[in-house]
Design a protein around this nucleic acid. Structure first.
Lengths: 245, 245
DNA sequence: TAAAAAATTATTGTAAACAATTTTGAATGT
DNA sequence: ACATTCAAAATTGTTTACAATAATTTTTTA
């Protein structure tokens, strides 16, 4: 059987070079970030097993770092740890999906109002620039980049409040949204509808909190509506129910 | 020097009885919960060093469980990990304090509106019962219990939405609020002003979202106003600045 | 005597060996 | 051919010993 190496960005290169001085060992946070990114970009689909041995090989670090990274990822709901069985990319169910969207509506509706009223010129620059990046990625059809930037737009909105706690909470919810889209997303309308981020930005620039809030709510509802929450792909493909008795 | 054992509830009893069959080993989550509770109730003030050895002794477990528990606590912002120096109960600064209160205003204002509109009879029962418990604790002057229940009221509000994601986020913010109160709280007005939870509950029972939201905002602002954010007790008591040159 | 330097101690970080559990695969019987 | 049982392999959980770092004490020196 061929040596299967998990694809985790530049970490996916062969790393049997512990003695070759060139590469430095990635620290805990870097491991978390790389796996995080891989999950966000849906290169690691839900239920993927993250075995310690393979991760050690991929990152070229000892088992301990990996285990700590996995624990941190689990605390953010990105992976699930099953005792004696290992770590798996988290597989949200319908309940979690609706809860995450519910939480985001509560939080982001309120955040957008503050941003629409208080955003500084610098904030607006950052947001404008970000939307431009999104457009560029869309025109070049870089799917992974589109997904990443779409999520990050919402993080940047939270960041515009200057409240780092808010930023962190939104970031976590956005990540889990990516997982959910990966699981339940219909192939057609992927992640964030094209122009809606631009519309939201316009409302902010008009300093119109009511319009901005309405747009954000609608935006989140569009994403949620694009999901197919009917089919429950929860456990293994579940041969029993597929093949009948 | 006397053997100093960290006071962590029932874990503080001597636990040199690994071979005596009676006690079971607390698992990871239990260790987290006990330290969490100790921090919430301000028995472990900020900047307290949590040495692995002492914790191992207190809980009667190996170093590994302790280290994992500390990592989880760090991921929730309850302790800070300093490389090669160990774990310390987190010491929020003014910036974090205002951010946490800001985040709570955003979240809880929105949550309370939903609860005021949609709360079930069962939800109301739970909340009424909880407020009664708070009253009882206040009348008996059980300070630790008052602190714990005051925080938990807000968690129960979030729980009333039925959204477990919201509940978790609010719970984390409430914990960090406890840390902040422990650091910056003035001795006089402790944690949550007496009757305000009852008032909020009344507004919910009246199904009056506007009143409920206003009360929650005011409530959070009262707590924040009771803090003394002027004095920066950041590092060690800092003998230099106290004793002058 | 006080400050600086060095050695000692204590504590955390890491790696390796070991134990326990789960998964896999083959052998057996119906 | 199918299911069951048992053994082997692989994977995770835990303990142990060791290395690296920070804190403390002692010694040295100005």
């Amino acid at each position: 059987m061929a040596k299967k190496v998990l694809k985790l960005g530049k970490a996916a290169v062969e790393m049997n070079d512990k003695q070759s001085g060139g590469e430095r060992e990635p620290d805990e946070q870097e491991i978390v970030d790389r796996i995080y990114a891989a999950v966000m970009e849906q290169r690691l689909p839900p239920k993927t097993k993250l075995s310690e041995a393979k991760l050690c090989e991929s990152f070229g670090v000892g088992r301990m770092r990996i285990r700590r990274a996995l624990l941190l990822l689990a605390s953010q709901g990105i992976v699930d740890l099953h005792s004696n069985r290992g770590a798996f990319v988290s597989c949200p169910d319908r309940r979690e999906a609706t809860d995450v969207f519910g939480a985001r509506k509560h939080l982001e509706s309120s955040i957008i109002r503050e941003v629409a009223v208080n955003a500084s010129a610098k904030n607006l620059d950052v947001l404008r620039n970000h939307v431009a990046l999104e457009d560029a990625a869309r025109q070049q059809n870089e799917r992974r980049e589109i997904i990443r930037l779409s999520g990050e737009f919402h993080v940047k909105l939270a960041e515009a409040t200057g409240n780092m706690v808010l930023r962190r909470v939104v970031r976590e919810l956005v990540t889990r949204t990516s997982l959910i889209i990966g699981l339940f997303g219909t192939s057609g309308g992927s992640s964030c509808p094209d122009h809606e981020h631009q519309d939201i930005l316009d409302a902010i620039q008009d300093k119109d909190p009511d319009a901005a809030e309405a747009l954000v709510r609608a935006h989140l509802e569009h994403i949620e509506a694009d999901l197919n929450l009917a089919t429950e792909r929860d456990s293994q493909p579940d041969l029993v129910s597929i093949l009948g008795l």
